[in-house]
Write a protein that binds this DNA or RNA. Structure first.
Lengths: 225, 225
DNA sequence: ATAATAGTGTCTCTTAGACAATATTTC
DNA sequence: GAAATATTGTCTAAGAGACACTATTAT
């Protein structure tokens, strides 16, 4: 009963919203295999590092974002024997949601980084099995908007109801009634915490600003249907 | 940029229902570390084996169940640096749900195997970080009963509405109104497919028998509240 | 004033949950 | 018939979705 050696990596599905689209962070590979192709950011787990720590470290290296401001959660493990032609590599993917859109930083083994619209990445092919990992990450985000306060992770620390609604509309690629949405999210226990101030950055009547509340689940859930 | 060697294992949270309780499959460790302690079944991933294949192989080795009859899905990856004192081991845990209760088979590195009530395992401590993995698996199963047809995975190929209800009651440790439950599940699109026959194995008026339907989601969801 | 967005109220329809009533078996 | 379970029906309250209406800003 042996224990054959594997390499273990973490890969990141980092999602954000530009003005108009759901985007994922991709880096151009600077070394073989798949030299010059786009891939998800990621890297090898260090000998004494927990998986979650490795994911947070890679996220900081690739984006320069302060760890506290970004939601991150484990997505899944991927370990097909031929997923990396060099050797046997098992990767544990993490899903991160970033509120704004900072200029990506090129990492050590990445020549270039950019935010790519998820829609356009369905045509373009990513390196390794990263197409699948990205698809799984996007689907996880879509599903969790239904029954968790995850949508607030796409928002700045203070946000309006309209900004939160735009998150749902862009991630789900749908339109939601502003009035019913407003009634629903302001009524959901622990989802929103009023700051007391308002903003006119969206035009029209000033909108109240909110912070994330303490709720870990969204009840009643938001329905896609 | 190196790639330090890791061992990779799969561990299994196998759940079933006895007459009265939700039970998990545990094996007594026949080798150090944690010699003599109870642990989740699992083992090393082979050099040319996919993670899911390794999980199905281990499941067959430990339970003797035909692979087609058991629901299995990936749970999560666990990779704390000190989770195995021998070496750096990353494990990918899988969740399996079995319909009936076959006599467990002792595996190669397990001296003994048994179905242990999940309730009692909260006191008893499992080897490695298996307490955490088990808790995550049980919570996943509980959560998925709400919005997926997963409960049918605990049932035999043909089952009654009362048997399905008992799944919910045992996994959630709650009581559900038989009449409302019946109306709900028979009305859920694609959940149940009538076989045309009936059974009196539960006593009283004969109950219609059903097979799993094709639905992948349960809509409207079953609520715990 | 007009346009734009924020927020509230109202109506209808569906569903959850409580529970009465009926149906079909075994003993 | 009595006991047990299956299945259907009825009522009430809560929430979803459609949409009229009012509120508050900029131009």
């Amino acid at each position: 009963m042996g224990h054959p050696p594997f390499a273990v990596t973490v890969d990141l599905v980092v999602l954000t919203l530009t003005g108009e689209e759901l985007c994922a962070l991709v880096v151009r590979r600077g070394i073989p295999p798949y030299l010059g192709d786009w891939a998800l950011p990621g890297g090898f787990v260090r000998p004494d590092e927990d998986l979650a720590d490795a994911a947070r470290r890679e996220l900081a290296e690739e984006t320069g974002l302060a760890p506290g401001t970004v939601h991150i959660e484990q997505l899944a493990g991927y370990g097909a024997p031929d997923r990396d032609p060099r050797m046997r590599v098992v990767t544990v993917a993490y899903l991160a949601l970033a509120p704004d859109l900072p200029v990506p930083q090129a990492g050590t083994d990445a020549a270039e980084a950019r935010w790519a619209p998820v829609r356009s990445l369905r045509a373009e092919r990513l390196a390794f099995d990263h197409d699948r990992i990205l698809a799984d990450g996007v689907e996880r985000a879509r599903a969790k908007l239904e029954y968790s306060p995850l949508a607030t992770a796409f928002c700045a620390p203070e946000f309006t109801v309209a900004e939160l609604r735009r998150v749902y509309e862009l991630v789900w690629d749908t339109r939601l009634d502003p009035r019913n949405f407003h009634r629903k999210v302001t009524g959901a226990e622990g989802l929103l915490e009023p700051t007391g101030s308002t903003t006119t950055r969206d035009g029209g009547r000033p909108a109240r600003l909110y912070r994330r509340g303490a709720a870990k689940v969204l009840y009643p859930p938001m329905l896609r249907s």
